[in-house]
Amino acid sequence: MPVDTVWVVAEITESGPSSITQELLSKARSIATNVAAIAWGPDTASHAAALGEYGATKVYDVGAVGETLPGVPVAGAIAALIEGGDTPDALLVPASYDGRDVAGRLSAKLDRPVLTNVVGLSENGGLSSEHTLFGGTVAATAHFTGEGPQIFVVRAKSFTAEPGGGGAAEVVSAPAPAAGATGTAKVTARHVEERTGPKLDEAAVIVSGGRGLGSADKYEMIEELARLLHGAAGASRAIVDAGWVPYARQVGQTGKTVKPNLYVACGISGATQHLVGMKGSKNIVAINKDQDAPIFSVADLGIVGNVHDVLPALIEALKNR
């Protein structure tokens, strides 16, 4: 018996519903009879068709949140709907910057627990979530035991986005209630960092660098190789912690989960923290000078060698083609 109603916290980008939003709507459609999206922004109605295409039959429109960070108003709007008697069985929330704020705020507001880092969901009378632990070596299944809406925070790439051919979703206004002191954090400026090539979580090829690069300036080699392979440049936690590259580049448990066609790990030893974020890649190449490095245990091709020798030679070879 499918679950009756699932709501998806839907993030809208300039090009429409984000990829994880499409993934969550696709999954929701397969487990629930009624799927609604919770969306915010100045013009949610214009995305009703795209949200409907992936499975939402209804869009709760929180409206423009202006310069307020979305966590408080979106959680407030959801809580107001629920307190008004319109309650889903479950909420699927993207494990993104704003999604985690929404889930945390909502959880405390409703006094409902959350299950986070969900990588799978199955429906068998109730809902069970799958999680991977300890660098992906252990899989755990969990479920909620109490009453009330179940809040699942889902990692990107857990489900496949598939359009279902549904018509435009019905738009229902769901304004955020006044937030008081909690809503006083305001964005005063937005900065878009220059990026060439595809986004990390959408790239077919990812080249990542780690401590083995030796110094921050050597990360240029990673960017150059990524460019030559029309891919994106990623990083291990170690060099993000060291301040060589921004957090947005980080692949791993704390960071992004990626599943590209090809992942090239350069000077990355392969701590469980990193492996959990990339071992779902279709093909993995690793270059590391330590032949006992754990990264080799997941690599389809492992080169035991110095990145400072192998990378320049590889870049040169690709340039000459």
Partner: peptide
């Protein structure tokens, strides 16, 4: 108000070819 109902080992991804540079 949540519980883990099942824990299992994930099958390890098989390693591939290792080449010493």
């Amino acid at each position: 108000r949540q519980e883990i109902t099942d824990v299992s080992k994930v099958e390890a991804r098989a390693g591939g070819e290792i080449v010493v540079d």
